[in-house]
Nucleic acid binder design. Structure first.
Length: 476
RNA sequence: GUGGCUAUAGUUUAGUGGUAAAACUGCGGUUUGUGGUACCGCUAUCGAGAGUUCGAUUCUCUCUAGCCACCCCA
């Protein structure tokens, strides 16, 4: 507001005294404004709004990607008996800080936080595992038959620098299994993720690793630091920083000079105790049994603090492009529930990034000349005149319940336009109802390919159409 | 959060220090009862703001946004 006022004021001043400001440049300012003649809109205060940084709209044209994803997620949930959990977007800030962990980027730099009107510090959820754990504890779900399986789907918020496939508000769906420590639970979670990508037609590969228990991990970390200290003079500057700040990230370094050091580095798997090792081995055995291709990845550590034992990430299978960003990931978090004030409860879960999945799927389809086909429309119903419209609206309503997918447009009045639409939709048949048909109680069925038309009684329209479409009436 | 590149119609892209071109799409039209073709018309405050200039979409700066790399993650 103040800005606008100022603007107008300035302009007026300029008009009155074109030369006031233009000591060194006589009437330039005045001239430009006069020429433009577009000073008017500014006063009308029109402003077009864009999106906040990192935000995006999901448009109807992408529905063909989103719908199958949701359907698959839902089917998998039903099949594996996960119950839908919906939690609020806003939670107490502490929930995330405590669970995800101080020192992680997610809580330190990326959380949307603010003070509510009553002074409560709240955060918009950056992920959902913490909320799921909260819900599990809060609703006493340990009293339910274990394991308790929950799934979710919804927007998450992270104030990160946007990039392709990286948004500040993005969508995830995820599955969480509480109360089952057996390796089978880990495998089941991975199987669900794998099946999801199979359903939507995107080949993926699973990267997997085990972090063991916190003690094992700590021991390993010490060893890793010792090792890297001894090689200090060979590694890049970033790595030297990592050595102090975040040693486990050393294994992610892409710098050429560090590769040699990296390869010789100790691997966490050798620092796991017998139990951890067995657990991990059994997970891998299940994956073998299920024919899920996986890749052991010793550098896979994950950025959230709560993970123990199995961790995994999902990548597009043919990752020749710079698609180093994971589509999804997850792992076991056996200590989190207790940590958050619940009973000791083992748990394992995963989350999948939907925007990234859409992006990867688009790239994959483009590369392989594949297209996602929409559900085909069976017929277009065209109408002419007020009478025609009145009859047609009823006929359309009748057709709706019969499993015939129809399209129509009441706002196009000419038959020409309507047939054009029908043509664009590539429907096999058009039904035409005009004045004459209304009078006779008939309808024209036009075969869009041959152009052959047939006049039928309106009462017989449905059965005739069904027969033409190769469908038969269900037995009553 | 750090660095680099980019910003022209809905989309993809031309172009110029003197207010802009094309293709595709969309909408409308070429008899308001017959489509896939053809023809015609319409659609751009040249990302925002400031500066240099007689004059800027074109040059400079700032901002904003997008993309890429880093960080990290989905």
């Amino acid at each position: 507001m103040p800005k606008k006022v100022k603007k107008i004021k300035d302009k007026k001043m300029e008009i009155k005294k074109p030369k006031a400001k233009g000591l060194s440049r006589p009437d330039s300012v005045g001239t430009r404004n006069d020429n433009k003649k577009k000073a008017v809109p500014a006063e009308r205060g029109k402003k077009s709004y864009g999106l906040l940084r990192g935000m995006h709209d999901i448009l109807p044209k992408d529905e063909k990607y989103w719908k199958p994803m949701y359907q698959s997620a839902q089917d998998l949930a039903t099949h594996f008996q996960f119950g839908r959990l919906e939690t609020p977007i806003l939670e107490e800030i502490g929930l995330f800080v405590h669970s995800i962990g101080k020192g992680t980027d997610v809580v330190d730099k990326e959380m949307y936080t603010f003070e509510d009107k009553d002074g409560t510090k709240v955060a918009m959820r950056p992920e959902l595992t913490a909320s799921a754990v909260r819900a599990y504890i809060m609703h006493g779900m340990w009293n339910m038959p274990q394991p308790v399986k929950l799934w979710y789907w919804g927007p998450m918020f992270r104030h990160d620098r946007p990039q392709a496939g990286r948004y500040r508000q993005f969508h995830q769906f995820g599955f969480e299994n509480f109360g089952q420590s057996d390796s089978l639970a880990d495998a089941e979670i991975i199987l669900i993720a794998y099946n999801f990508y199979k359903d939507i037609g995107l080949p993926v590969e699973i990267h997997i690793n085990s972090l063991g228990t916190p003690e094992e991990r700590a021991n390993y970390k010490t060893e890793l630091v010792n090792y890297y200290r001894s090689k200090r003079s060979y590694i890049c500057e970033d790595c030297r920083n990592r050595l102090v700040k975040n040693p486990l990230r050393l294994l992610d370094c892409k710098e050429e000079r560090c590769q040699g050091v990296k390869e010789e580095a100790p691997q966490i798997i050798n620092w796991l105790g017998t139990d951890s090792k067995n657990h991990f081995m059994k997970v891998l055995e299940y994956l073998d049994e299920l024919n899920i291709p996986y890749q052991l990845d010793h550098s896979l550590m994950r950025g959230l603090n709560y993970y123990t034992h199995t961790v995994f990430e999902i990548y597009p299978a043919d990752s020749d492009v710079a698609s180093q960003s994971a589509l999804g990931g997850g792992g076991r978090y056996d200590l989190l529930v207790e940590e958050m004030g619940g009973r000791p409860t083992p748990a394992v879960g995963m989350a999948i990034g939907l925007e990234r999945t859409v992006l990867a799927l688009k790239q994959y389809n483009e590369k392989n000349n594949r297209e996602i086909s929409k559900v085909p429309t069976d017929a277009f119903v065209a109408q002419l005149g007020d009478e025609g419209r009145r009859v047609t609206i009823k006929i359309i309503d009748d057709l709706r319940g019969c499993g015939i997918k129809i399209a129509f447009n009441f706002f196009k009045t000419s038959l020409k336009n309507q047939l054009e639409l029908a043509d664009n939709l590539k429907v096999p048949f058009a039904v035409i109802i005009g004045q004459k048909e209304v009078r006779d109680g008939t309808a024209i069925i036009r075969d869009m390919e041959s152009g052959i038309q047939e006049i039928v009684d309106q009462k017989k329209l449905i059965p005739v159409l069904k027969r033409k479409l190769g469908r038969f009436d269900d037995k009553k």
